[in-house]
Computed example of a mutant assay.
Amino acid sequence: LKIPVFFAKPYCSSDKPHIENINGLIRQYIPKGKPFDKISDDEIRQIQNQLNNRPRKKLGYKTPYEVFFLHL
């Protein structure tokens, strides 16, 4: 596919700011230390839906869903 690949250094959050950002957003719904086996599939889908419909400054205040479908 000739797609460039970047490998971040382990434990180096500055190498992966987008991942750290989404982790922070997820933590608004799932507190640190809560076992993932205690979270139902429905809860995960609900969180996923809320995050994908949340406008982002980085996306020009569009939602990830809007941007995804604009590029299809």
Rank of each mutant, 00 (worst) to 15 (best):
S40V: 09
E66V: 02
P55E: 06
D15I: 05
E66C: 02
F69V: 05
E66L: 00
Q48P: 00
L1F: 10
P35H: 12
A8D: 11
R27Y: 04
G60P: 05
K57A: 09
S13W: 02
H18R: 08
N23F: 12
F6A: 12
G60F: 09
L70W: 05
S14A: 13
Y65A: 03
F68H: 09
I30Q: 06
P35F: 07
Q46A: 14
R54D: 05
K9L: 07
G60T: 10
D42I: 04
K32W: 06
P4W: 07
V5L: 15
R45Y: 11
D42L: 09
Q28C: 13
N21I: 01
K62H: 14
F68D: 01
L25N: 11
F69W: 13
P10S: 10
K9H: 12
F69A: 00
I22C: 01
F7N: 11
P35Y: 10
F7W: 07
Y65S: 03
D41K: 12
I26F: 12
F6W: 14
Y11Q: 11
K58M: 11
R54C: 12
A8M: 10
V67I: 15
E66W: 01
R56D: 01
E20G: 02
I22Q: 03
D15N: 15
P31I: 11
K58A: 15
T63L: 02
V67W: 01
F36Y: 15
P64E: 07
H71T: 08
D42H: 11
P4Q: 13
L51Y: 01
P4A: 10
K16P: 03
L70G: 09
V67P: 02
F7T: 13
R56W: 00
I44G: 03
G24N: 10
P55Y: 07
G60H: 07
I19A: 14
P4I: 12
N21G: 01
N49C: 10
D37H: 14
Y29F: 15
I44S: 00
L59S: 06
Q28F: 04
V5R: 12
D42V: 08
P55H: 04
D37V: 08
E20Y: 03
